[in-house]
């Protein structure tokens, strides 16, 4: 219970966020756990649905976090 799988683009890695006892959480809680701030990401579900930080995600959702800063 409480495991949220997140794909991070462009790193192309999958991270698991473990929040025991919770089957759904707010996007901002997910970002906090991943140590991202809202201003540097766009979060999608199921490929095309863009979520705000106040939307709710559930265990098993297909969640992708796109990182906005590019270049170097």
């Amino acid at each position: 219970m409480g495991i949220f799988k997140v794909k991070i683009i462009p790193k192309n890695i999958v991270r698991e966020v473990n929040i025991p006892g919770r089957s759904e959480i707010k996007v901002y809680e997910l970002l906090e756990a991943l140590n991202f701030v809202v201003e540097e990401v766009v979060v999608t579900r199921g490929g095309s649905e863009i979520l705000t930080e106040y939307d709710t995600v559930r265990e098993g959702d297909d969640i992708v976090v796109f990182l906005a800063p590019s270049g170097g």
Binding site: K11, V42, F66, G72
Partner: peptide
Amino acid sequence: SERECLTYAISNKLPVHYGECPYSPEV
């Protein structure tokens, strides 16, 4: 902002390469 550009690109389904340049430095 970059976040606004990213949101615009995703929401309009633009054909975009979301990968990183293979030579961009780690930090």
